[in-house]
């Protein structure tokens, strides 16, 4: 699965991985905000790209794969870049393309250097509602399980009917609705099982993490330096 790789990357160890999730989140937000307010020119993205690439190198993450994964944003951006180009603003279109790509790379660096549970508990201590965070934790935990089940069902369905089978569109639509209902039924019964298992283990509405990290002085220095670098990159981007 696509994201399992990023999940593995996030559990490596490096200078960036050991920083507190809150510090990394704040630096990422500062970078995104500074980039978003930089002038609409593709050159604006260059200093930010430099910072993020340095971050990827510092976190010892595979550069080529990271660059490839962040490209998911490109089809959408390309469409709008073409629209801007057609409206007689090729530079604005290029800026959109470059800036949205660097933004996606920034977020990817954040999730590839922070395990998801730590990132979510960091968000909770920064003020995200607890119920939302708990929900996101279970969602993330079972996302791949249920997606895999959906893939198995799709494989089984195409084995039964064959890819060349011709059915009326209405029947195919009904069949898809039926598949959705079956997937729902399986998810629901799985959820009930999980619920019972968790209740049996004493779940009262709180996830406990074995790792407790405190925000130490290094994290403070990292957060301040990161925000300063974001402003510096913005300053460089404003220079003609």
């Amino acid at each position: 699965m696509h994201h399992v790789v990023v999940e593995q990357w996030s559990r490596r160890r490096s200078f960036l991985h050991v920083r507190d999730a809150r510090a990394k989140l704040l630096v990422a937000l500062a970078l995104l905000a500074a980039l978003a307010t930089a002038p609409a020119s593709p050159i604006s993205a260059v200093p930010f790209a430099f910072l993020v690439l340095t971050g990827i190198a510092a976190a010892r993450l595979p550069m080529a794969s990271m660059l490839r994964k962040a490209a998911v944003v490109l089809p959408f951006s390309l469409l709008f870049a073409l629209v801007e180009w057609a409206a007689g603003q090729p530079m604005a279109g290029m800026a959109l393309l470059a800036k949205s790509y660097v933004s996606a790379l920034t977020v990817l660096l954040l999730v590839a250097s922070t395990p998801q549970p730590l990132l979510l508990s960091g968000m909770e201590s920064l003020g995200a509602p607890r119920l939302l965070v708990l929900m996101a934790q279970t969602l993330y935990r079972y996302l791949f399980v249920i997606s895999e089940q959906a893939q198995h069902m799709r494989l089984a369905a195409s084995c039964r009917q064959g890819s060349g089978a011709r059915r009326s569109r209405a029947r195919a639509f009904q069949a898809a609705a039926g598949a959705l209902a079956i997937l729902f039924a399986r998810s629901y019964s799985r959820a009930e099982g999980i619920q019972r298992a968790m209740a049996a283990r004493g779940f009262t509405g709180d996830f406990h993490s074995l790792q407790r990290r405190s925000f130490n002085s290094r994290d403070t220095v990292f957060a301040c330096a990161g925000a300063a670098l974001a402003v510096l990159a913005h300053l460089v981007a404003r220079r003609p």
Binding site: L134, M135, A136, Q137, T138, L139, R141, Y142, L143, V145, I146, S147, S187, Y188, R190, A191, E192, I194, Q195, M198, F203
Partner: peptide, 8 residues
Amino acid sequence: PLLGVLGA
């Protein structure tokens, strides 16, 4: 957990 799994 039910809500989270329904999200998934």
